[in-house]
């Protein structure tokens, strides 16, 4: 006999939040990570230790809208929905296209990718360099937290059990004027877990660097980003001098500490991460995208 599982699927977000306030539950948006995490061997259903709350259908969590220059993305928007949405910046769409395959993209959500907090989460490097802020909602109200504070380690996030990630806010993104690149390095072109992820952001005033950001995925327990290193480039002009590039690369060389595993080697991950960084820094010009 299959064991009984309690599952909730409320019509509205407020009902969902009050249930979460009463009971510690596992939240399922798309389920593409939760179902894999709790998978049993063949012929036995997944063993999920807590009651389940489905949130994938809640329209309150599926809106994409502009608020001043900020972009708000509902946490339960599926990847496929985001690919169709005119507000979503093209580098983020490019990143989404590298995730899994169409079937997973039809189920998986942006909020899920964040809350799963995988070291190899495909959208995370970009969200880090967009300075994404997360809107968490509970019966007690809303709070906003930076993505880099929210994600604490592999599969560890700063979410209270009565909270739902409601929105991802990309501040000032609609101002434009920045050049953003994203590169996912996987073992194949679909259904691959990243061996290295890289996102670079640069905003120029003429030839002078006003703002620059980098994030690396799959080379540590969480995304690697360093404001201290980024600051060293502020005010410099492009094309950057070889010495400046070398200084930045050397600084990241010190803090990127990948591991060997069944998918790749530490040496490869580090070399490629630094190659992608060096390439980004060596570009002769940056077109806003």
């Amino acid at each position: 006999m299959a064991e009984k599982i309690i599952a909730y699927r409320f019509d509205r977000l407020d009902q969902t939040l009050s249930q979460l306030n009463n009971e510690n539950c596992v939240i399922i948006a798309g389920g593409t990570d939760v179902m894999v995490l709790h998978k049993s061997r063949r012929g036995v259903p997944p063993k999920i230790p807590k009651p389940i709350v489905f949130i994938d259908h809640l329209s309150e969590l599926k809106r994409v809208y502009q608020n001043d220059k900020d972009l708000h993305i509902g946490a339960c928007c599926t990847y496929s929905e985001l690919l169709e949405d005119p507000f979503i910046p093209s580098p983020l769409k490019d990143a989404i296209k590298t995730i899994a395959a169409p079937a997973i993209r039809n189920r998986g959500t942006l909020g899920g990718n964040i809350c799963n907090a995988s070291p190899a989460g495909d959208t995370l490097p970009l969200l880090y360099i967009y300075n994404a802020k997360l809107l968490l909602r509970s019966v007690k109200g809303d709070r906003i937290v930076a993505i880099s504070d929210f994600i604490q380690g592999p599969r560890r996030v700063q979410r209270d059990h009565n909270e739902i990630l409601a929105e991802i806010i990309l501040p000032s993104i609609l101002e434009g004027g920045s050049h953003v690149v994203f590169e996912k390095v996987g073992n194949r072109n679909a259904d691959a877990i990243a061996k290295v992820g890289f996102a670079g952001y640069i905003r120029l005033n003429g030839a002078r660097i006003d703002d620059v950001r980098f994030a690396f995925g799959a080379v540590g327990p969480t995304m690697v980003r360093s404001m201290d290193i980024e600051k060293k480039l502020l005010g410099k002009t492009v094309p950057l001098a070889a010495a400046d590039i070398a200084q930045i690369v050397a600084a990241f060389d010190k803090i990127i500490k990948p591991i060997d595993d069944q998918r790749s080697t530490a040496l490869y991950r580090k070399t490629v991460a630094l190659n992608l960084l060096r390439y980004f820094l060596s570009m002769k010009q940056y077109q806003p995208n």
Partner: peptide
């Protein structure tokens, strides 16, 4: 131990 870790080609490869 999984197809994605082993990496046989997909239609995109």
């Amino acid at each position: 131990k999984s197809i994605s870790d082993y990496g046989p080609p997909t239609s995109l490869d």
